[in-house]
Write a protein that binds this DNA or RNA. Structure first.
Length: 117
DNA sequence: GTGTTGACGCCTA
DNA sequence: ATAGGCGCCAACA
């Protein structure tokens, strides 16, 4: 096994980021900072955006990753689409922001992994 | 190895 | 609420 990770969006951090995003359930959202933190790099919120843009995989709810404060943030293609997707999941989108963001903010299962298969 | 860019975060005016 | 600036990390030329 290689002692060094792969490059080009194949880093361990990138894999962790995708893993976290995949855990975000419908109707909930997490911030780039939260994903970065859960991925092991609490200061890499910006890098999270970079990774999602590069290592984007089909099937992952990238639209559920928003900026701090409940701001919808950016999105590949069109931020408006991101807001529309969130609104379609029942989130109270107000312009470029989510109302009562704290109540819709997602948190990973603690103690045990929710992944049961 | 260096410099620039970017789906960010927080502070200050 | 709006605008400007600095710091952080990873990908890319």
């Amino acid at each position: 096994m290689s002692t060094k990770p792969s490059r080009s969006a194949g880093t361990a951090f990138a894999a962790r980021v995708l893993r976290v995003v995949r855990q975000i359930p419908p109707g909930r959202v997490a911030t780039y900072g939260d994903v970065a933190r859960l991925a092991g790099r609490p200061r890499a919120a910006r890098a999270v955006g970079t990774i999602m843009r590069i290592a984007s995989m089909p099937g992952l709810p990238y639209h559920r990753v928003v900026a701090a404060g409940g701001l919808v943030g950016g999105y590949g293609g069109s931020p408006a689409l991101k807001a529309a997707l969130l609104a379609a999941e029942g989130l109270p989108i107000k312009g470029r922001r989510i109302r009562r963001f704290a109540e819709h903010r997602w948190a990973p299962a603690r103690g045990r992994r929710s992944g049961q298969g």
